[in-house]
């Protein structure tokens, strides 16, 4: 009993961890199902159909491709814009700092449905048609703040003396930025970029307001499928995404750990 009491937090933590992981396990298991009927609720029969024929469900790979293109473009642009803002906030004193902070914070403090619908009203009034461009604009908008947060955290820990040392050793401002500042900020920028990509790739609510019938992103495809019956391929793709995410996060941790070991 005393042993259980002592490790109460550990048990609670592991239970919560299990709670967060159960759906991923289910997704992986059901990607090997050959469902009876159109709803993939019960495990019927083992099958690798979804894995050998991932584009087997009509439209699924088109939507995946669109989501990847939008995700990559949005995350690159949002990372550039967000990194610039993070450097300004982390490195300079300027007037209007609190207004800037507020403007960065606001998109994170606004429900997606409000952002999506308000953008729709703007696009309606400005005559911008719904579609991939509108989606891209929206995704960049809500990703920028998250990039700023990720990069700013890193920039704040950079020692300004390292840049002084570079100047002292004869590096001009451009060389200092490229050889010292940027490599040191890189982990934060990479984290911001990955976060932006995953937010963009996964967004349904805002996208739904700005999509046209011809611009179906992957989450929209899944949403539509959820009403009609989800193809097994969705579960296979979900599993692949989980494994890629796991791989990327593990790689990030390994690189981070190596850096930390050097610091220690």
């Amino acid at each position: 009993m005393a042993w259980i009491k002592r490790h109460l937090i550990t048990f609670a933590a592991l239970a919560v961890l299990a709670y967060t992981l159960v759906p991923n396990v289910i997704v992986a298991v059901f990607s090997f199902n050959d469902p009876k009927g159109k709803f993939n609720y019960t495990f019927n029969e083992f099958s690798t159909d979804a894995w050998t024929n991932p584009c087997g469900a009509p439209g699924i790979c088109d939507s995946l491709g669109l989501s990847l293109r939008i995700g990559i473009t949005a995350s690159i642009i949002a990372t550039i814009l967000g990194t610039m803002i993070a450097f300004a906030l982390g490195r300079y004193r300027f007037r209007g700092r609190s207004a800037t902070n507020l403007l960065i914070f606001m998109p994170m403090a606004t429900p997606e449905v409000v952002m999506g619908s308000s953008l729709l009203t703007l696009f309606l009034m400005a005559g911008i048609p719904a579609g991939p461009v509108a989606i891209l604009i929206a995704h960049i908008m809500f990703c920028v703040s998250f990039v700023v947060v990720a990069v700013k955290a890193r920039v704040a820990t950079l020692d300004p003396r390292l840049e002084e040392a570079a100047a002292d050793l004869g590096a001009n401002p451009t060389q200092t930025f490229l050889r010292v500042t940027l490599p040191l900020a890189a982990p934060g920028i990479a984290a911001g970029g990955l976060l932006a990509f995953s937010l963009s790739f996964d967004d349904y609510i805002i996208t739904n307001f700005n999509a046209s019938p011809s611009s179906i992103t992957f989450p929209m495809y899944v949403w539509g499928a959820a009403q009609r019956g989800v193809p097994v391929q969705v579960y296979a793709i979900g599993t692949v995404m989980f494994l890629i995410a796991l791989g990327v996060v593990v790689a990030g941790q390994v690189v981070g750990a190596r850096r930390n070991r050097q610091v220690a």
Binding site: D159, R161, L162, E164, A165, A166, A167, D168, L169, G170, A171, N172, P173, T176, V180, L184
Partner: peptide, 15 residues
């Protein structure tokens, strides 16, 4: 960066 003067910084400031 144009001066032929170099510094050993207090906290070393090694990259």
């Amino acid at each position: 960066y144009q001066r032929n003067v170099n510094t050993v910084f207090q906290s070393y400031a090694l990259f």
